[in-house]
Amino acid sequence: MRYVIIGAGAVGGAVGGRLAQGGCEVVLVARGKQYEALREQGLVLQTPDGPHTHRLPVVNGPEALGVLRADDVLVLSVKTQDSAAALAAWGPRPVDGGGTAAERLPLVCAQNGVESERLALRTFQRVYAMCVWLPAAFVEPGVVRADGTPLTGILHLGRYPAGADDTAREIAADLERCRLDAPVVADAMRWKYAKLLANLANSIEAVSGVLTSEEGIALFRRARAEGEAVLAAAGIAYTSPEEEQRVRADKIRFEPFDGSPRGGGSSWQSLQRGAGTIEADYLNGEIALLGRLHGVPTPVNDVLQERANEAAREGRPPGATSVTDLVAAVDARVARTVSGS
């Protein structure tokens, strides 16, 4: 198999780098400064077991890769707000022997949220869900940092909407040769919905800084409680924290290896890079959407979604708003919701 990593940022770079270390053939897809850096200096993957430089083929789009191979696996690791454009670009690409990528090739959604799989299934016939637990950060163009140890990440993988097959098992076998655990499960979305609940903290981190205060942690608990109520109303199953802990045990720990302070998650990193967009619509916004569909008010997640989008739109750095001010905005929205005004 050849792995085409569509979106060679933090997660895509870490997964692509580890696959390359395991002897797999990897092509990185990137844009702008990241594309230039990868092309000129290669991918530098910083990990607790040392820095690794991988000089891999890199392209800035499907046209540059030409006709795809029949053994290609497309790994979608862009942010969800960029999924539709990526799917439209890669789906029609011809595959050696006939047909298109959308008809013939497996597409793995290695992303936060739960929407990309559904978007992909509109055009791609072979879609796989991957729940990504992998602490990684985009350091600078060409450089990705992954702090997990002894494993770099745990990637639950299965067919979408459900099931497991030989392709999933082949992909998992490749991943597990290179410091990644990849359990193949028939219910990968159950793991992704649990990750969605955890990711409701992302907007708080982005807007008000890394969650270290009791005030910030309490706000996350309120957002998660809304999320749990919404999933219950929608009849959507998700793994419990106890099940996650049993499966992950001590396989992956976050241990900074050079004394650097820990940054925030993917949304925090989007503001730090000045990306101009953020994934809040597919995290807190997913809870808001399901709440409206099933008659459950979601004022906490509504405010977090709005404030995160506002910060991205206005180019604010992460942590520009105090958690006290953010809590006040949430409390005001909750009061209006309760009063019906």
Rank of each mutant, 00 (worst) to 15 (best):
E205S: 08
A168H: 09
L68A: 10
P150G: 05
S270E: 14
V73I: 09
E310I: 01
K251W: 07
R273W: 12
N112L: 02
P62G: 06
G61Q: 09
Q272C: 01
T277P: 00
R307P: 00
A182R: 00
E310P: 00
K251Q: 12
P256H: 14
A182F: 02
G13F: 05
F257H: 11
A280S: 15
L151P: 01
A172D: 02
A328C: 01
V27Y: 09
L157H: 07
V185L: 01
N202P: 04
L43K: 04
D82C: 08
G158A: 08
G285W: 01
L19K: 08
Y3D: 03
S267N: 04
L19H: 07
F257C: 01
I278V: 14
A164R: 14
W90M: 02
G276N: 08
P161D: 13
G295N: 05
R177V: 11
L43F: 10
P48A: 05
L289K: 15
R224F: 13
A172Y: 04
V78G: 12
G259P: 00
D147S: 13
A332K: 07
V230I: 09
G209A: 06
G227P: 03
A223N: 06
A188I: 00
L326A: 09
K251P: 01
T321S: 00
P106L: 12
V67I: 15
P183R: 09
P57H: 14
Q46K: 13
P299F: 06
A10H: 11
D281S: 15
R2P: 02
D331V: 01
P57Y: 15
D82R: 08
T239H: 14
V184G: 03
S270C: 12
H156D: 09
A85K: 10
I278W: 03
Q41L: 09
R118N: 05
V11C: 05
A234P: 07
L38W: 07
G42W: 10
L290A: 01
F124D: 00
A312H: 09
A188P: 00
Y282T: 03
L74H: 07
